[in-house]
Design a protein around this nucleic acid. Structure first.
Lengths: 163, 163
DNA sequence: AGCTTTTTGCAAATGATTTGCAAAAAGCTA
DNA sequence: TAGCTTTTTGCAAATCATTTGCAAAAAGCT
């Protein structure tokens, strides 16, 4: 799964960015987890291998990597105000977040690409980036009667896959 | 355009919320501007008529009104970390934000509703809310050669309609 | 009018993200 | 590989939007 992608060093060089131990580490962690991590999450993982790494370094590098197209920012409705990232290599998909338990459901659909195409065609704009996310009640929570917009407290009934 | 919708007072009562001068004012301002306002923007407008209104009151009431379904939160990719609101009465539409000039293009499409329907059908979830937004370069900026992800500085070439 | 509950204004807290700065590391170049 | 220039790092303090605690004021009964 991670077999054919260039190493963090190569990707950094290819993008014309300096290769620092911190960047290499962050890229690798992002690759490995193949999941949505925010700066704090990345920081936690990173300091396990590089105890002196600083949170602001993580933020700064996420900005650099994003600018360079090496990572992509993902959005979750529930998590507005918190920025999540995935390696740019992951497949195009979208997210649904359960308001009750926090579970994240990933799904694919060609329709968003069509929306983008139509938007570009009809308005002459060039779409560079999209934020698409849904939230509501997942099947399990619905089954156990969770139908109303519940308290802000999220009680995971099952560990969300990205934790 | 605003002819047939119930007054702020009526809407508040119908939603089982207390009718306070502040809430009535905020709802009215939201109706009048028919545009995307954030808490700060609403606050600015509100204090012109009610100089002692407090920013935290605006925040608290936006939360209440949102919970009651009287206003809806809108999302702009560029504005992540800032919460925008529109009256719930406005038609379903989506936003494209120009990274270069800040212009907001509104557009409609039935495809998002289909995505939602498919998501619900295929995963058994109940979608309560969606965040759909696009960003990139608008036609005008493209015409004047703005094609790269420019600096954070946004130079409006034309006052965006919502200011 | 009197009583109870909700809301308000104010100030201070929060939480994520950013910034200034001097020291350290990266990427040349000779 | 040493020397030099530019970028990056760690740290602490700052910022910015949003939230919260609290006592006084207003709303909604009766």
């Amino acid at each position: 799964m991670t077999a054919s992608l260039p190493s963090p060093e190569e990707r950094l060089r290819a993008a014309g960015q300096r290769v620092t131990a911190q960047r290499v580490l962050l890229l690798r962690l992002l690759d490995e987890s193949k999941e949505h991590l925010d700066a704090e999450g990345l920081y936690e993982r990173a300091r396990r291998e590089m105890p002196d790494i600083n949170l602001s370094t993580v933020y700064r590098n996420l900005a650099v990597l994003k600018e360079a197209g090496l990572v992509e920012q993902r959005y979750f409705a529930r998590e507005h105000g918190r920025e999540y990232f995935e390696p740019s290599t992951s497949a195009e998909h979208y997210h649904f977040t359960c308001l009750s338990c926090g579970r994240v459901v990933e799904f694919e659909t060609p329709l968003i690409a069509r929306v983008r195409a139509e938007l570009q065609a009809r308005h002459g704009v060039r779409v560079r980036h999209a934020c698409i996310c849904f939230e509501g009640i997942c099947a399990d929570c619905a089954a156990r009667g969770q139908t109303v917009p519940p308290s802000k407290e999220i009680i995971p009934h099952d560990p969300p896959s990205h934790v």
